[in-house]
Write a protein that binds this DNA or RNA. Structure first.
Ligand SMILES: [Zn+2]
Ligand SMILES: [Zn+2]
Ligand SMILES: [Zn+2]
Ligand SMILES: [Zn+2]
Lengths: 129, 129
DNA sequence: GACTTATTGACATTCATTATCAATAAGACT
DNA sequence: AGTCTTATTGATAATGAATGTCAATAAGTC
């Protein structure tokens, strides 16, 4: 049983992620950290983000060009409404949809049904209102 | 105005995709085509699939290891319930969720709201029933 | 402080996807 | 059928996100 160790690198990634608005890529986080004087390695950023995902402290979605984007996130299950222009993100919980999702699974003979739901739109600011 | 041309390669990809059950990767399609004697190039498979996506004749999702998976698909908007073991796929339409999705957008000041919804579960067969 | 080993980071490697570009062939027109 | 234009093809190179490697470092324990 491997014992986890706390390092300033993990804290730096967690902190940088929580400072970011909207979703960020691992590479972007690495650049931001370096811009602030950190010497953290790229591979370490990837590893720290993978840990955060497993721990449920971060969410991830796949961007249109195929790379993973991360976002700090509480432990409760929820989904996101993301502006496709500026990345502004709103957390939404969707009780109706949660119920629907598990119901549909059962109706088709499926068990252990999980789901991914992402909403994309244009926010007020990006419409120039 | 570039005029589209019809080629046996595009037909081959469309046909191979419609024969496939569940989602397939571009590389898998290329292998299947070659196994059936075709000499189509890999880049051409990618191009044909991209065209099918634009035309709305195919769906795509991102697999857990990051690659794009394609599936033949009618033109009507719908979603998928996919067995995470065998890939068995059921098309579902989700009127409640469609309404919910566009409603949530408006409630938060977003317009032009689109969404992605994927359900994953374990089908009857894969539970050994 | 000494010790064990989880973790780091520079670098190499993998691999899906895209770009290049000369060769091919679809479609239009005669 | 033949000619011409150019969209398309395919072998190959290039891109780039993500992961593997491994000696050096440092967290946690005693
Ligand atoms: Zn916006
Ligand atoms: Zn949910
Ligand atoms: Zn199954
Ligand atoms: Zn829908």
């Amino acid at each position: 049983m491997t014992v986890k160790r706390n390092t300033w690198q993990k804290d730096a990634v967690r902190h940088a992620l929580s400072e970011s608005a909207g979703f960020v890529s691992a590479q972007q986080l690495h650049q931001v950290l370096h811009a602030h004087g950190s010497t953290i390695g790229l591979a370490t950023v990837y590893r720290a983000l993978a840990d955060l995902l497993l721990a449920g402290d971060a969410d991830s979605i796949t961007s249109t060009d195929g790379q993973l984007l991360y976002r700090a996130c509480g432990t409760s299950h929820h989904h996101h409404l993301v502006c496709r222009e500026c990345g502004l993100t709103v957390e939404i919980d969707a009780d109706q949809v949660e119920a629907w999702a598990s119901g549909i699974g059962g109706a088709n003979g499926f068990t252990d049904v999980s789901h991914t739901i992402e909403l994309f739109g244009l926010c007020r600011g990006c419409r120039g209102l």
